[in-house]
Amino acid sequence: MLKKRIIPCLDIKDGRTVKGVNFLGIRDAGDPVALAKRYVAEGADELVFLDITATVENRQTLVDLVSNIAREITIPFTVGGGINTLNDVGRLITAGADKVSLNSAALRHPELISEIAGTFGSQCVVVAIDTKFTDGAWRVFSHGGRTPTALQAVAWAKEAAALGAGEILLTSMNHDGTKNGFALDITTAVCRAVNIPVIASGGAGTRQHFRELFATTPASAGLAASIFHFGEIAIPGLKKYLFNQNIPVRCS
């Protein structure tokens, strides 16, 4: 049976992780490779690295970082942030990234999704959708959630899938950071609208929230950042809990 995936997300700035990380035993908490290795050892199913600086000057830093990560970790990983061209994607894939995550660039140039899928395969294109329930609809935001667009989440997810996206990474801005649980309704609606895997993000605060996500929506994966970084939820304990709740997970 296909397992539900647990995915820690690491925010990267200038090649270092940002936000607090309080894993014991990592001397330099800002080192993304050390943190990534720790997550692999703990049983994370996949990792997402999000470059939050994403400036042109930092492109090479990110490519170098991807090479280092690829050398050290043996599970799939996705890189996102500031990816604008097929050339950007090529450099990251060649450096060892398995997937790239597109957000604003896909909204600006939807054809980029098809270009990447056509060149590297659908499996390496993740379309990240930041959405917020406002004025009675789940609207799509770009530029890290700062800029509203005319699109709605379900319609954009369908279009992205039709253009060749291999996965949708859906973040509810209403839920992100609240630790009150995932956005179950919009996650379900997007899952039903597309035939590709959907990763739910935003709102995880407890183990029960992951159970609720997997028990009540068709989401393929749950992504979170700070609760893992701050050790509020340890991945081995989370997996064991989900397993005991009859949620199919990989227990390594």
Partner: peptide, 13 residues
């Protein structure tokens, strides 16, 4: 088949 969620992505036995 078209009804399946594809790609088959993730950890499986």
């Amino acid at each position: 088949p078209p009804a399946a969620r594809v790609p088959h992505t993730g950890w499986n036995n």
